[in-house]
């Protein structure tokens, strides 16, 4: 089971934050096929958000074929987003951590690290396209 959290300052609407958090958990292998998502009532009770927000998020996930709702039982994961690349995550994370250590050693602050990553990421996307 996963738990959601909301960032009120992000400007991203609460329903999209829930969608993103499920997709992220699916991608990272935290949620697998057959796992149950928190019930609407549970999410509402912990986050004090509108139930329609949660329902909307779950409906969107259902439309994308990632989860299915069993009336009266709950919402379950039907497909995972973690593909064969999951095995590669750990070594990649270690490499990234080594890179971060190098960047900090060179005196690059957090803000510049983020900016560097974003610009390299965008550059990479353009290279592919």
């Amino acid at each position: 089971m996963i738990e959601f959290s909301l960032d009120g300052r992000s400007g991203v609407s609460p329903y999209l934050q829930v969608v993103h958090q499920v997709r992220q958990a699916l991608r990272l292998g935290l949620l697998r096929e057959g796992d149950q998502l928190p019930t609407v009532k549970d999410v509402v009770a912990t986050l004090a958000i509108n139930p329609n927000t949660v329902l909307k998020a779950y409906r969107e996930l259902e439309r994308d074929g990632l989860v299915t709702a069993r009336p009266g039982v709950g919402t379950f994961v039907t497909r995972t987003l973690a593909d064969d690349s999951l095995a590669a995550h750990e070594p990649l994370r270690r490499e990234l951590q080594r890179w971060l250590v190098k960047a900090r050693a060179a005196g690059v602050d957090d803000e510049s690290i983020e900016a560097l990553f974003r610009s390299a990421f965008r550059g990479g996307q353009r290279g592919v396209a």
């Binding site: 004090a48 958000i49 139930p51």
Partner: peptide
């Protein structure tokens, strides 16, 4: 707000609530 939202999830209920502080309502209103 937690109790109120739980009630909305459980009962078929329309809610109208007022506030002069928008941030109070941000999470709960659609």
């Amino acid at each position: 707000l937690q109790v109120l939202m739980e009630a909305v999830a459980e009962q078929e209920l329309s809610v109208v609530l007022s506030s002069h502080v928008v941030s109070d309502l941000e999470r709960v209103c659609d």
